[in-house]
Write a protein that binds this DNA or RNA. Sequence first.
RNA 1: GGAGGCUUCGCCUAGUCCGGUCUAUGGCGCCGCACUGCUAAUGCGGUUUGGGUUAACCCCCAUCCCGGGUUCAAAUCCCGGAGCCUCCGCCA
Length: 433
Amino acid sequence: MIDLRLVREQPDVVRASQRARGADESLVDALLAADAARREAVRRADDLRAEQKAASQAVKKASPDERPAVLERAKKLAAEVKAAEEEQRAADAALRAAHLAVPNVVAPEVPPGGEDDAVTLRTVGTVPAYDFPVRDHLEIGEALGAIDTERGAKVSGARFYFLTGPGALLEFALAQLAITRAVAAGFTPVVAPALVRPEAMEGTGFLGAHAEEVYRIERDDLYLVGTSEVALAGMHAGEVLDLAGGPRRYAGWSSCFRREAGSYGKDTRGIIRVHWFDKVEMFSFCTPEEAATEHARLLAWEEEFLALLELPYRVVDIAAGDLGTSATRKYDIEAWFPSQGAYRELTSTSDCTTFQARRLGIRYRDADGKPQIAATLNGTLCAIARTIACLLEVHQRSDGSVHVPEALRPWLGGHELLTPGMSLAAAPGPAAA
RNA sequence: GGAGGCUUCGCCUAGUCCGGUCUAUGGCGCCGCACUGCUAAUGCGGUUUGGGUUAACCCCCAUCCCGGGUUCAAAUCCCGGAGCCUCCGCCA
């Protein structure tokens, strides 16, 4: 939810933001109208309640003679209050609906345009040249005994997979490296629930435009999260946080589930787009003043991680029309996939300013001790399945083996290469962890 | 899955049986002032969170886990739900 004061005081800013997103500008005026209507309804109900309270007191003090008349008046007022409260409830609901319909205000620096208008901020690393026909990650993974999508489909359906042998080890190696780096950077590591209640899903904005993407367990009224962001944001819902010492940072590990409705036919091969994967997600709570700086830090930590994996990538500044509902600004990191000859999204970091926190009631105390709405930010540290796919492709060799980045070796038995048919036992020598 | 207990304004707590100055008591913490030849003790005052109104102060409304209901009137009575705790059952 955006700040209603901003809508009242600078509606043009919000209208401009809607234009930039390619969203409906009239929603802003609808919101203003709903806001005014609600305030009117509140005033009426408040005034009536005050009158009724006095009348109710009078009942008690009335002499036996006066009592019937006074009681009659109190009853009449009670009925009026009930009607006024009904109207207020309707006005509240209308305002909420209008409020939820408006996405976060786009930061002024965000590039204009839609999906194809992201601006590349920088390209890092060299795209490797291969003097042999490159294989895609599935072909490599199958040869290594690392990925099995056929049996994944047998057991669970399309877009499911098994990670086996070196693939399973890679999963843990990436998770370990990500969590280790996050802890070194001061994050609190968290293992978060993957099933959440509707309020958490709603509060983080995933039941709006993305509702079709979400798995729901109807029988228990729970949702499977598409990212641990949901649980991490919900973790402090309704709390007043102490942010005097700077941002509060969590690195959450969880499985993530996505229905991938509407992506039929896209990335059907391999494990780039799947219904389930595990992910280490960074999440920050901070003051609104710190948010933009924090966003840059999250991006820096993402870049540092890709550097450790020795993956070439580029950083793109997502255009206004392609921003998520909650984001004021978003950077994606796209890594090179040789089999596709293209950069594909590997991580994403969004600055949600106060948009999520307002809905979830996450606050902090300012210098005057007054509660204020906090800002929230999120960023992928490592989406494991897709990262494995990228690693296998980029680091492939002509003989079907795969180079292991040094940073991952401590968790891969010290091996410098993954080779078809290899033993997974630790490599001999001092390199072994 | 079954039975019982609990949830009060930062923390602890009185109040709930038997509805009405509950405008919610007290302690701790915190803030201010006073006093004292030291930032200790003491005394006095303040201290929930939202919303409405306002230039601001004031004032008004709501808020005793949440949502309904009964009533002129609900922290208090009734129904539903959530969370926590204890016990039984089942279980990785």
